[in-house]
């Protein structure tokens, strides 16, 4: 194990453009989180996922709706 597993909110996307748009809106809102490679447990169209603390879920969902980004998956899992 390289790192201590943590419970994280993980969002995957159909396109890289959507991933970058998510990073942008999350930053604008000051949400803690960053782009990561898609975890093996998930499969996604885009190789990038956004990961943040689980408590960001509500704010992030709202931001995604505002930005008209439809995630491929939005899950909480231990990675």
């Amino acid at each position: 194990m390289l790192r201590k597993p943590q419970l994280r909110l993980v969002v995957t996307f159909h396109t890289t453009a959507e991933a970058l748009k998510t990073e942008q809106v999350a930053r604008q809102l000051g949400l803690e989180g960053r782009l990561i490679p898609v975890p093996q447990a998930l499969s996604a169209g885009c190789g990038l996922a956004w990961s943040g603390p689980p408590e960001t879920e509500t704010d992030l969902k709202h931001a995604l709706r505002e930005a008209e980004v439809i995630p491929e998956q939005l899950v909480t899992l231990t990675i």
Binding site: T16, A17, L20, E23, Q24, L35, I36, P37, G47
Partner: peptide, 21 residues
């Protein structure tokens, strides 16, 4: 390389390309 992975230099390329879009 833009859109090819998630390390800092790749993300930097992807952000640049996105900003250009």
């Amino acid at each position: 390389s833009p859109g090819r992975g998630a390390h800092p230099l790749t993300l930097s390329a992807s952000r640049t390309v996105w900003a250009c879009r």
